[in-house]
């Protein structure tokens, strides 16, 4: 069982990221998952987060209590959800957008310039997919194949290839 939190602001694809991970796990990897979202009344720009509970059996309690993985795409999101992260958790951040505090406990911190990579690929809108590639490579919670199918399934058909390219770019980007 794993509890995952994505945090950022509206327009970054934070909720979409949760859906893709949930879909990858429960539709293509045959596990169980529940995705919940939280956003303000603004269409874009407001604080926004999504949470995914992954499990090998039916998810009963559907919320994150202590997260195993925190993916932070904004400073506000990081500040808000860092305390929720387990001492042994994994923290993934967009290094250009989030300034992190000194490490706590045994938290594993990994950073990636996901927005910059996405811009280099043509559009910052892929930043979340770059991050998902990175997430998949680091956490191995969902299979790469499952995630790729879920990405392809969740974007308009004419953008599938670009999204898969962005996913691969994030997947190949590894540094401690």
């Amino acid at each position: 069982m794993a509890e995952i939190r994505f945090a950022g602001y509206g327009g970054q694809g934070i909720i979409r990221s949760g859906i893709i991970v949930g879909k990858g796990a429960s539709i293509y990897d045959n596990k169980f998952s529940t995705m919940n979202q939280s956003f303000g009344p603004e269409a874009r720009g407001g604080a926004c987060s999504s949470q995914v509970v992954l499990s090998d059996t039916k998810v009963l309690y559907p919320y994150v209590t202590v997260s195993d993985v925190l993916v932070a795409m904004s400073q506000e999101g990081y500040d808000m959800f860092e305390p929720e992260l387990s001492d042994k958790g994994i923290l993934l951040v967009d290094e250009d957008l989030v300034k992190i505090n000194p490490p706590r406990g045994k938290i594993k911190i990994l950073s990636i310039p996901s927005t910059r990579i996405a811009e280099e690929l043509g559009n910052r809108i892929f930043a979340n997919v770059v991050m998902l590639g990175f997430f998949t490579a680091i956490t191995k919670l969902v299979s790469k194949e499952g995630m790729e199918k879920a990405v392809a399934d969740s974007v308009p058909s004419r953008f599938i290839n670009l999204n898969l390219k962005a996913f691969q770019a994030g997947y190949d980007y590894k540094k401690e």
């Binding site: 859906i19 429960s26 539709i27 919940n36």
Partner: peptide, 9 residues
């Protein structure tokens, strides 16, 4: 709202 906005299989 919780169930309405919750995604599952």
């Amino acid at each position: 709202e919780c169930v309405g906005h919750m995604s599952e299989k």
